[in-house]
Amino acid sequence: MSPDDVSRRGFLRGIGATAVLALAGCAESPQEETDPLTPERTTQTPLGGRNETIKELDGTNVSRFSEVYRAVRDSVVQIRVRTGARGTGAGTGFVYDDTHLVTNEHVVANAQDLFVRYRTTGWRDATIEGTDTYSDLAVLRVDDRPNVATALPLRSRDPPVGTEVVAIGNPYELSGTVSSGIVSGVDRTLSAPNNFSIPDTIQTDAPVNPGNSGGPLVDLEGRVVGVISAGGGDNIGLAISAPLTRQVVPALIETGSYDHPYLGVGLENVTPAIAAANDLEEATGVYVSRVVADGPSAGVLQGSTGEQSADGGLAPAGGDVITHLAGEPVPTRATLSSVLALETVPGEPTDLRIIRDGNAETVTVDIGARPAV
Rank of each mutant, 00 (worst) to 15 (best):
S2I: 11
D5I: 10
V6W: 08
F11V: 05
L12E: 12
I15T: 15
A17F: 13
T18W: 06
A19Y: 07
V20Y: 10
V20T: 13
A24C: 05
S29P: 06
P30S: 12
P30D: 10
T38I: 14
T42R: 15
T42C: 11
T43I: 05
T43H: 10
T45F: 14
N51W: 04
L57N: 13
D58F: 03
T60S: 10
R70D: 09
V72N: 01
I79E: 08
R80N: 11
R80H: 08
T83G: 08
G89A: 13
G91I: 12
G93E: 00
F94I: 11
Y96K: 03
D97I: 09
D113A: 10
D113M: 07
V116W: 04
R117E: 08
R119P: 02
R124K: 15
T127E: 09
I128G: 03
E129S: 15
D136W: 00
D136M: 02
D136A: 03
V142W: 01
D144I: 07
N147D: 13
A149P: 13
T150H: 09
L152A: 02
S156Y: 00
S156R: 11
S156F: 00
G162S: 12
A167L: 07
Y172W: 13
G176I: 07
T177L: 03
S180C: 09
I182V: 13
G185F: 02
L190E: 14
F196T: 14
P199K: 01
D200M: 02
T201H: 03
T204V: 13
D205R: 00
A206E: 14
P207C: 04
G211P: 03
N212R: 01
G215E: 11
P216M: 08
L217A: 10
V218H: 00
L220M: 15
V224S: 11
V225I: 15
G226Q: 06
V227R: 07
I228H: 01
A239Y: 02
I240R: 04
A242Y: 10
L244H: 12
R246A: 04
R246T: 01
V248N: 04
V248W: 00
L252A: 12
S257K: 11
Y258A: 11
G264F: 04
L267I: 11
E268F: 14
V270R: 06
E282H: 12
G285A: 10
V291A: 08
V292E: 14
A293V: 15
G295T: 09
S297W: 06
A298R: 03
V300T: 15
G303M: 09
S304R: 13
T305V: 03
G306C: 01
G306I: 02
E307P: 02
E307S: 05
D311Y: 14
P316C: 09
A317D: 04
V321W: 09
H324G: 05
H324C: 03
H324L: 02
P331T: 00
A334P: 08
T335S: 07
S338K: 01
V339G: 03
V339C: 03
L342Y: 11
V345T: 15
G347L: 01
E348M: 09
P349L: 08
I355C: 06
A360T: 14
T364A: 08
V365C: 01
V365L: 01
I367Q: 09
R370F: 03
R370I: 10
A372E: 14
